[in-house]
């Protein structure tokens, strides 16, 4: 009986890949920029997109929220980033890490890389737990603290994350600009090659460890994860109908156990677990369904109950 439900697998994934592709195109739709080698200068760049998407990419139509955050924090007029932070909060409370799962182009790239058929590395639990904190350090230190406080006498600051770390910036901004503008190649120094190396490591990592950057390094994912517990779009796993088959954990790109960690700080709400669950225990907890008795929050499904 339950086996029939497995045939419905992939439904969410089919919708999701389309949304991911649309998002990538919407964020980077200025193809004329790639042809002419110039940035888009229209007014839409005053708006932050919800995802990690470098605004120095010739095709970018919007502003990167993490880049904008560093820019405002680091500006010599020392303002508090109300506009950028407010935008990020709204994205966080409305969507949370659904942004990661459905909208982020860099996440999509990592997922495509993970499709390469090599044996995936299973990160040992202790190392994995420790490394998950790294992204919060990246957020706190490189996105917030260093741009805010590390200035010279003229008040000049730097976007530390953009300059030294961001692989999306290298992939979408640095490399295309290098390719499109021959004169720029003279300027490529050790910093550029460091960033290319880091990008290569991250992309290679994503082949063996799905969503490698999202798990351990992404400051935007770290920020949104703070909203996971109460974002409007959530998912639940009904532990009373769960049969503990473990299939959800096998397919989870973030390497978590959906039964216990679904909709938590590490969950990107991609729905792969839902697609493979033979007992249909997993579902999206959308605001409209809040009063539908079919959908129960995981806290009601019995915290103390042992699975199966």
């Amino acid at each position: 009986m339950h086996r029939d439900r497995m045939k419905a697998s992939g439904r969410i994934q089919k919708i999701r890949i389309i949304i991911q592709l649309c998002s990538a195109v919407l964020c980077n739709g200025y193809l004329a920029g790639l042809k002419r080698g110039r940035l888009f200068t229209g007014k839409t760049k005053a708006f932050c997109v919800p995802v990690l998407n470098c605004y120095s990419c010739p095709a970018a139509l919007g502003a990167c929220p993490i880049g904008s955050l560093q820019a405002v924090l680091g500006s010599s007029s020392g303002r508090f980033p109300f506009y950028v932070l407010g935008t990020l909060m709204l994205f966080g409370v409305l969507l949370g890490r659904l942004v990661c799962g459905f909208l982020c182009p860099f996440g999509l790239i990592q997922e495509l890389l993970a499709k390469i058929p090599v044996k995936k590395i299973s990160v040992p639990k202790k190392a994995d737990r420790l490394l998950r904190y790294l992204k919060y350090i990246v957020l706190a230190v490189f996105v917030i603290l260093l741009p805010s406080f590390f200035r010279n006498g003229l008040g000049a600051s730097l976007p530390w994350f953009c300059k030294y770390i961001c692989p999306a910036g290298t992939l979408e901004g640095g490399i295309p600009l290098m390719l499109l503008d021959p004169g720029l190649r003279d300027l490529a120094g050790p910093l550029f090659w460091w960033k290319v190396l880091l990008l290569a490591v991250i992309l290679a990592g994503a082949v063996f460890i799905p969503r490698f950057f999202c798990r351990y390094m992404c400051p935007l994912g770290a920020f949104y994860s703070l909203f996971s517990r109460f974002s409007l779009v959530r998912m639940t796993a009904d532990r009373r109908t769960c049969i503990s088959c473990g299939r959800c954990g096998e397919v989870c790109p973030m390497g978590i156990d959906p039964v216990h960690q679904i909709s938590g700080a590490e969950c990107i709400l991609c729905g792969r677990c839902k697609d493979v669950c033979p007992a249909s225990s997993i579902s999206y907890d959308l605001p409209l369904h809040a009063h539908d008795p079919k959908y129960r929050s995981s806290s009601e499904a019995g915290h103390g109950a042992s699975p199966g």
Partner: peptide, 8 residues
């Protein structure tokens, strides 16, 4: 583009 900002 501030060249330093994109790591060039």
């Amino acid at each position: 583009i501030c060249l330093e900002c994109i790591g060039i």
